[in-house]
Write a protein that binds this DNA or RNA. Structure first.
Lengths: 206, 206
DNA sequence: GCTTGAATTGAACAACTGTTCAATTAAACT
DNA sequence: AGTTTAATTGAACAGTTGTTCAATTCAAGC
């Protein structure tokens, strides 16, 4: 039967999280039963309760991990405010695409299953989401103030950009016609245009 | 009252559809039980099966109605190809926002619960969705060909625009700080910029 | 080999699932 | 009135749900 790695509970937990992400993305949180998930990782359903106190906590843990990983990864590549807004914006755009494309299932979950969270769990995730959004809005506001970007509402534009970039994951396929780097270029051009960049690709507006 | 069909069966069905839309948007399709839905409209659970053959058919009906209404409404305001691409694009943008803002729950469902559809039901909805998307892509392609718009990939840009516009429904609140018409202006400016419009607001690029 | 403690299990629980159907009520038509 | 048809129901069916727990298997330390 299941040839588990014994006391290496870490690998087991990772396998559970992985399967849970995949199955929830495919069928939805409510539609996924603990028995089905357990079967996927060759365990009895009861064994799952050694890794998560209950189903809701499992979902919360998945979503929270996704968001904290996102913020941690962004913190690593984020440019200092001393850099110009267009350069910081390009860094954000490329980072967002690079980080999200290989994590399509996690992204999907994070935007779809928020409603399955209890109120307090939802609030905890929302705080993280807004932090990310605010970071982008700040870049846009800085650019508008410095005259290197041109847009009407930095907060609204930030939301629009994130929606547009995240939407990639709904149609991107690894074996599709467009490669990740092509997509990166196309979308960076789009973002550059919609924020009225002036320092780069000025030819676009001539 | 002269019709043979039902006392006010139509009104009952509308009430059921309404409640179903609301409850599914809030808790998800899988999480909504027929008994809970029936309770919401003061019926026994069994009575629902007079209006829909089963739960899956109900969801499909809701999503299909949403999409056909969208396409029908768009067909009414769509401009002929004789009009310039920028004008047609503006019509599309404003239409999309006006149509979606008062239908937030339906929109949410249409993008969230696709995975809860059976394969064939999914395909039927997908056909409609792509038709809408192709319509926008055609406008962009026409504009690019005529030189009145400038973008790299009309298909990709069409998806980006729809994602960005539809994303409004995730944060728009009727009692929020931004009114519908304000949002319409902001987003039309965004779309105009990202498609490199040349005939209007040329000052943006100067 | 024996002990220890963690990992896993099968069985059980009570509640809930979508769906069916004969029986019943409500309404419409004659 | 009565007759016909539509609308609704309660009860039942056969599964499934998340979760608990005593009993068991397992891997490592002695």
């Amino acid at each position: 039967m299941a040839r588990r790695v014994g006391s290496d509970g870490v690998r087991t937990e990772a396998a559970i999280r992985d399967a849970a992400l995949r199955l929830i993305a495919r069928f939805g949180y409510e539609a996924l039963s603990m028995r089905r998930l357990a079967e996927e990782v060759d365990l009895g359903a009861a064994a799952l309760y050694r890794y998560f106190p209950n189903k809701q906590a499992m979902l919360f843990s998945l979503l929270k991990t996704h968001m904290t990983e996102l913020l941690a990864a962004w913190a690593k590549v984020r440019l200092p405010v001393s850099a110009s807004a267009p350069v910081r914006l390009e860094a954000f755009t490329r980072f967002h695409i690079r980080h999200h494309l290989p994590r399509a299932t996690g992204v999907f979950l994070s935007y779809m299953e928020l409603r399955s969270l209890s109120r307090e769990n939802f609030d905890a995730i929302e705080v993280l989401r807004r932090q990310y959004e605010r970071d982008l809005a700040q870049i846009l506001a800085d650019g508008a103030a410095a005259g290197t970007l041109a847009m009407d509402h930095s907060r609204v534009t930030a939301r629009a950009i994130i929606a547009l970039l995240t939407g990639i994951t709904t149609w991107y396929r690894e074996d599709g016609p467009l490669g990740a780097s092509e997509i990166e270029e196309i979308y960076w051009n789009i973002v550059a245009r919609m924020t009225g960049i002036k320092t780069r690709e000025a030819a676009l507006c001539s």
